[in-house]
Amino acid sequence: MAILVTGATGTIGRHLVRRVGDDVIAFVRDKAKGHALGCRYVVGAFTDHDSLARAMRGVDRVFLNGAGAVPGEQPMIPHQRAVIDAAAEAGVEHVVKLSVWHARIGGKLAEGAHGVIEEYLKASGLPWTILQPNGFMQNYSTGTAVATEGGHLIGSYGDSRVSYVDCEDIAASAAAVLANPQPDRTFVLTGPEALTHSEIADKLSTVVGREIRYIDLPPTEFANRLTAAGLPAPFAADVAALFAEVATGKLAPTTSDVATLTSHSPRTFDDFLRTNTESIKEAWSKA
């Protein structure tokens, strides 16, 4: 069996490649990064149909992942549609798509883009499984998607809770579905607990060794802070609107889907902190 992993050098892809083992083929843009993965790889691009067709030869299953929303554009949509088209042309037997929780057509930023792609995949005729994770715990060890100011967290979450999930558990769930397909099903992947951002800041403070506070802002002020930091105003407004939606509690529930797929309980935020102490310290020394 051959499994093609797109987004193979990213936070989830690197964990997934290791878990899939000898069956994996990584689709990468950079030859050196592909070589560093230590597995079979194909160099190409989502915009290069020939490289996608070459990557799909002999492939049975595909993990569909890629870069998220960026200011001013949504390349994710045409990129992932191209992968789906290539998979259909090659007769791939199953596609596992990494999405986001609450993906829907008309949603803002990644929610909207993933909603469009999910519907395209469902209409493609390919057997599919969709994984919809909550926010990544790893955002707090890389700085990705975490708004900071003066070394503190800022946002518009209020006192709402979020059941962040560890990317290791996302990769484990993906590996389980690729090994044992669950056709035409959607799984929502969360951690085992939901924390407020003040609680998260307190936990980060203990690891980093200095005070980190969560500063809650009205959405308009939060958008203004993001714009002042260099984000385009329309993009900043959409980010603030998404944060305000989180304040309603939409990301607070927990599910059992990680345990259902992997047969182990998802990692807690404390587990994540213990495993990633050094990278967290490094990231927050620059915040």
Rank of each mutant, 00 (worst) to 15 (best):
M76T: 15
M76R: 14
M76V: 09
I77K: 05
I77E: 03
I77R: 07
I77L: 08
P78I: 09
P78G: 10
P78V: 08
P78R: 10
P78T: 10
P78S: 12
P78W: 13
H79M: 14
H79V: 06
H79L: 12
H79D: 15
H79C: 13
Q80R: 13
Q80I: 08
R81L: 13
R81Q: 15
R81Y: 12
A82N: 15
A82H: 13
A82P: 12
A82V: 12
V83Y: 09
V83D: 07
V83P: 04
V83N: 09
I84Q: 11
I84G: 08
I84H: 13
I84S: 10
D85F: 15
A86D: 04
A86N: 12
A86G: 10
A86I: 06
A87W: 05
A87K: 12
A87L: 01
A87Q: 04
A88H: 14
A88Y: 11
A88V: 13
A88T: 14
A88D: 08
A88S: 13
A88E: 13
E89H: 11
E89D: 15
E89W: 12
E89S: 14
E89K: 14
A90S: 05
A90P: 06
A90N: 09
A90T: 00
A90F: 06
A90G: 00
A90Q: 09
G91C: 03
G91Q: 03
G91P: 05
G91E: 00
V92G: 01
V92K: 03
V92T: 11
V92H: 12
V92C: 09
V92N: 04
E93A: 15
E93V: 10
H94W: 06
H94Q: 09
H94K: 00
H94N: 01
H94L: 04
V95R: 10
V95F: 08
V95S: 04
V95C: 06
V95L: 04
V96M: 02
V96E: 01
V96H: 02
V96G: 00
V96F: 03
V96N: 02
V96S: 00
K97R: 09
K97M: 11
K97G: 01
K97Q: 11
K97F: 07
K97P: 03
K97D: 02
K97Y: 12
L98Q: 05
L98K: 03
S99P: 02
S99R: 01
S99Q: 02
S99N: 07
V100Y: 03
V100E: 07
V100S: 11
V100G: 07
V100K: 04
W101D: 05
H102Q: 09
H102M: 10
H102I: 02
H102V: 01
A103H: 07
A103V: 04
A103W: 04
A103S: 13
A103R: 08
A103N: 06
R104L: 01
R104K: 12
R104Q: 11
R104D: 00
R104C: 01
R104V: 06
I105T: 13
I105E: 14
I105H: 10
I105S: 08
I105K: 14
I105W: 01
G106D: 07
G106L: 02
G107Q: 07
G107C: 02
G107V: 00
G107R: 07
G107S: 03
G107F: 00
K108P: 03
K108D: 09
K108M: 10
K108A: 08
K108R: 14
K108Y: 11
L109H: 00
L109V: 01
L109T: 00
L109F: 00
